[in-house]
Design a protein around this nucleic acid. Sequence first.
DNA 1: ATGAAAGCGCTAACAC
DNA 2: GTGTTAGCGCTTTCAT
Lengths: 342, 342
Amino acid sequence: MPEQTTGASRPTLEAVAAHAGVSRATVSRVVNGGAGVRQHLVDKVRKAVEDLGYVPNHAARSLVTRRHGAVAVIIAEPEFRVFSDPFFEQQVRGISRELTAHDSQMVLLWVEGVGDHQRIARYLDGGHVDGALAFSLHSDDRLPALIARSSVQAVFGGRPPVGSGLSVPFVDCDNRGGAREAVRHLVSLGRRCVAHIAGPRDQTSALDRIAGYHDVLVDPDPALLCQGDFTRESGARAMAELLDRRPELDAVFAANDLMAAGALHTLRERRLRVPEDIAVVGFDDMDSVVRDTEPALTTVRQDIEGMGRLMVKLLMRLLQGRSDAAPASVITQTSLVRRASA
Amino acid sequence: MPEQTTGASRPTLEAVAAHAGVSRATVSRVVNGGAGVRQHLVDKVRKAVEDLGYVPNHAARSLVTRRHGAVAVIIAEPEFRVFSDPFFEQQVRGISRELTAHDSQMVLLWVEGVGDHQRIARYLDGGHVDGALAFSLHSDDRLPALIARSSVQAVFGGRPPVGSGLSVPFVDCDNRGGAREAVRHLVSLGRRCVAHIAGPRDQTSALDRIAGYHDVLVDPDPALLCQGDFTRESGARAMAELLDRRPELDAVFAANDLMAAGALHTLRERRLRVPEDIAVVGFDDMDSVVRDTEPALTTVRQDIEGMGRLMVKLLMRLLQGRSDAAPASVITQTSLVRRASA
DNA sequence: ATGAAAGCGCTAACAC
DNA sequence: GTGTTAGCGCTTTCAT
């Protein structure tokens, strides 16, 4: 029976040193950038590395450096399909790219329930990763606090609800400001009766967008606020309900593009013209949605991939202990993208 | 890679040993299960571990054991949205769950292009992971060969095209058999003119399903085979084309559910009754699609999450060197799920 | 600029 | 059963 078929044992630093006729220390220096080694030797060592197909042993290295070149990305799946959410995919893509740029790998920790919490905590404390990235999805989630309590540095995607992972820095877009801009735009178009289709109340992004709506429309008719859950269907339903409640409606700001698309669908069914009868603004500028909306959707753009990259950058800064100069959290700008719907 | 923020150094085995008044070896034994240690000492050590909050250093451990408790999951993104594909999500979920059961973590390696290949190869050879899991998506992909050439054991999801990652074991469902069953079912219903909407020719699953179609319908009218690309839209388009080409059509087997849904859409537009006029069978039994198809879709079910789990099981078996007893690859069964559409 | 040597924290022979 | 000891492969002072 073949023991652990990892093939013939790989060459070590020692072997490279012998092959190049230098000491292990010199090889180590060359492998790690080669600063302070004469070019002559650098070349020799490089050749030896090449000849032998040497690849540094990561375990040995991190045993002494205490660095792992890996970051945990914690994904909590609350109900369903977080993973296949395009928002999520974009953010993870940004994280992945930036991590690669920092020579770090992504260890995916998939949390399916409270039963996994113990496992996650142990992993974070087990010295496998340099830091952790997580997403604050729902306010009833115990995970943020768990992560904040762990021994590794962490950065959140999305503003955590007040009173959970308090001291953990996060990256989020300016949801409130973006919402404000959307509503202001509708008002500037001369719309008098602006409704809002809100996202789920247990997500800070939805709450912040509601707040932005209220910033502009002080004391609006409560009947103009309708609850959705960020799905297309809920947007369609909410739109129908709003029309029934307030037929005089002339504009609607949906808390995300998917709900805006649903609203557009309902408006078409009811033979209402967009934007002539009702102007519609979404949020996210999500490519997969915006691509085939009719008419083209005016929306608030946020740079989701960029936010993922920022999460990594922030974490890396924290790990280097340069927290003195850097701000704790990052709020990214949004921008209104004007298209046909408003 | 970031520098390390120097936290309070964690207790080592040594410290626990001293605290418990035993040797390091004994502590090590207890920490690793405690076999062959008197209960009396086990308790003492456990308490010491508890008192000091000891957590084993993973790097030190894998330096000597040469095991890492981690598996690379390689995701190649050919054109777009692999990640948010529900098929993919289910498979990764299965992988994640089974990995957890094996006390292993998932290191996600996201490949965006040929430029990443070098990086992936180095990572696999760098001794970070015990093995690798990958998906064979497109036949023009150089990745399978790259992985097969690396020093770690690997298992593929989906049958790789002949002549690529030749010796690498894989897990796939019986695409050909499933397709056969689908078409046989249509024939047994008395359908005389059975069309096939095929998937992209560079994916083995699509090819195998075409083969299954041909197994049953020897020498069918070539006009009855129409090319799609696994998207809903392509299914709708293909259905339209098929109807134009052969109005006498009375059944269609689509290579996946999404295309079947598209086909259903076209049939409804053309006022054709399903299954009275035309019977429709899909492939996958993808929940998110099948859930709201009208009429309910008859389809070939494959256990996608189970396939993900099997990939891990197979890999673990390979890592234990028990390849003698175990078959190289696994082909899972499919089953026809009869609903209303056929 | 380079080499010698001392560990990093752990496991696994091997001795007792 | 339990302890002693020899590394795993690497980085990093500290001499030279």
